[in-house]
Design a protein around this nucleic acid. Structure first.
Length: 259
DNA sequence: ATGGCTATATGTTATAGA
């Protein structure tokens, strides 16, 4: 079972690039972030015609997440637990029924800039809720993963120019510590555990020729429970997607599970 | 780097992203 995450930065703007990548990479499951669309505006037929089931959790203009799956989905839930008045569409999860059942969570963690400020407070509060959900996932002792745009650069090795990010919400010590607190519950960063070297990124800004200069950061992650990590047979970043026509500023990250 | 592009809706300008 190949499971990917992709921040597409607008489903309407990616009407060509997303199907193109799906046809090439042929993932069984994809979690999408920043669909920037309400549920009714999502062009589900395009993906259903490619054999994908479509579950969306959208909102007007910004944010928005979705799951596309060639395999049957069960128990789809929307919204990260822990704050009844949070209306931002940043979390969706479902059980994917392959050879084994895998609980797949898709997330779009708040950016948090400028920091300090209310947006940063929201980011840290959201990360505390993420940790609580992560704990509950571990307690099931089943294969599960949390994939998405975490908006956190875990280590200096995950940025081409770490010094440029020291005051940014993506790299502040509190942000990195909050991500570590979740990881340290017992999750595996799928990409990092297989590739210890620096220089692998998932985001390149549209500005200042960041792509051409390879001035990137690694902020899209797939975190595996121990039972999912046991099943991992491969992992990768589809970097070439960033050089295609009308690309998102993020690229897909994927894992292959023996499930 | 005084955020220099890109995307969406609030729409010929404002807001958000990272």
């Amino acid at each position: 079972m190949k499971i990917a995450t992709f921040n597409i930065n607008g489903i309407k703007a990616r009407a060509e690039a997303l199907p193109r990548w799906l046809a090439e990479a042929a993932p069984d499951v994809v979690v999408l972030q920043e669909i920037k669309s309400v549920d009714e505006g999502f062009p589900r037929e395009v993906f259903e015609d490619m054999g994908y089931r479509v579950e969306t959790h959208g909102q007007k203009g910004f944010n928005g997440v979705a799951i596309l799956s060639k395999l049957p989905l069960e128990d789809v839930t929307r919204g990260l637990p822990g704050d009844e008045i949070d209306e931002q569409a940043r979390w969706i999860e479902a059980t994917v029924n392959g050879a084994r059942a895998v609980r797949v969570c898709g997330l779009y963690l708040p950016n948090g800039n400028p920091a300090p400020g209310p947006k940063y407070d929201y980011k840290l509060a959201w990360m505390a809720r993420l940790k609580a959900r992560a704990k509950a996932l571990l307690a099931t002792e089943e294969p599960a993963l949390m994939a998405g745009d975490y908006n956190v650069i875990p280590q200096p090795e995950d940025a081409a120019r770490p010094a440029a990010w020291v005051d940014d919400a993506l790299f502040l010590p509190q942000s990195r510590a909050a991500l570590r607190r979740t990881l340290n519950l017992g999750f595996t960063d799928a990409f990092r555990t297989r590739e210890p070297r620096s220089g692998h990124y998932t985001f390149w800004d549209y500005q200042a020729a960041a792509w051409e200069k390879n001035n990137g950061i690694r902020i899209d992650h797939i975190l595996l429970t121990p039972q999912a990590a046991d099943l991992m047979t491969g992992v990768g970043i589809d970097k070439a997607v960033r050089g295609g026509d009308k690309p998102s500023d993020h690229v897909p990250v994927w894992v292959e599970l023996a499930a």
